[in-house]
Amino acid sequence: MLLITCPFCGPRDESEFACGGEAHIVRPADPAALTDAQWADYLFMRKNVKGVHFERWMHSHGCRRWFNAARDTVTHQFLAFYKMGEQAPDIAPVSYTARPAPRTDPALPADPALHTDREGAR
């Protein structure tokens, strides 16, 4: 269960909210001038960040207003809430990808120490 802080109403239960997906997507000023690929990019292509994700939420069973949030998509922890039209806060990205093995002979067995910073270990 998530506890979500609506910038207008304060902290409320997740069940009062609807998630609207990626934030800060700007509708093209002149859609007719776009190619099909550009229009498809606007319509369908989305960031699917493993880490800090900026997204829209709506307090649908409350004030019914939209706002933005920054949330870690692995831990589900909210890092910031801010109103529509405001700048996204400067939050350092998090990487959940393991460190690559050093460039050695690939035939050699891997160093088990490299397996430590994995998702399962968190």
Partner: peptide, 25 residues
């Protein structure tokens, strides 16, 4: 198993292999 892909190596428009936690393949 137990081998995570950490990167994909490319030469121009062509992939040439994967970087993994067990080295380049």
């Amino acid at each position: 198993q137990n081998c995570e892909v950490t990167g994909i190596r490319r030469e121009g428009d062509r992939v040439t292999g994967v970087e993994t936690t067990r080295g380049f393949i």
